[in-house]
Simulated assay, not measured.
Amino acid sequence: MADALPRPSTKAATPFVTTESLAGAVRGPGGQDVVTGPGGRERILFHGWSPDGRGRVMYLADLVFEDGRPVVRGDRAR
């Protein structure tokens, strides 16, 4: 991962992490933070509604880059 964002940067046309982008696995995701996990693998932490809808919980998902753009692997959110 780069030490700094490339400049100039532009805001994405669509939100980065949404219920739809996570294939419905997490409702109401937010508060994302990227971390480097074991073996140098990029991961993303974020919160969302618990499966029973009673509270917010923390989720972890894989983060990969395709054509220079970050992509969250929602099928692995847990």
Rank of each mutant, 00 (worst) to 15 (best):
G24I: 03
T14L: 14
H47S: 05
F65E: 15
F16T: 07
P38I: 12
D3L: 10
R54W: 06
D62V: 05
Q32T: 12
P8Q: 03
P8H: 07
R76N: 11
L45F: 15
G24R: 06
K11S: 09
R78G: 07
M1S: 13
F65R: 14
G74I: 06
T14K: 15
A12M: 14
P38S: 15
A2G: 03
W49R: 07
V17Y: 00
D33N: 08
R7G: 09
A13Y: 04
V34M: 02
M58C: 07
A13P: 08
H47R: 14
S9I: 08
V26R: 04
S50F: 04
F65V: 12
V35P: 03
A23N: 10
R43K: 15
V71L: 14
P70A: 12
A25L: 02
D75E: 15
T36R: 02
L22E: 04
V57C: 01
R54E: 01
D62F: 02
S21R: 13
A4I: 07
T10V: 11
G31I: 02
M58H: 13
T36P: 02
P15Y: 05
F46K: 04
P70I: 05
R56G: 00
E20Q: 15
A12S: 11
V57S: 00
R73K: 15
P8T: 08
D67T: 04
D33P: 04
V72F: 09
G48W: 00
A23G: 02
V57Y: 01
G55C: 09
R7T: 15
L22Q: 08
V72A: 12
M58E: 13
D67V: 01
G28Y: 08
A77V: 09
G48K: 06
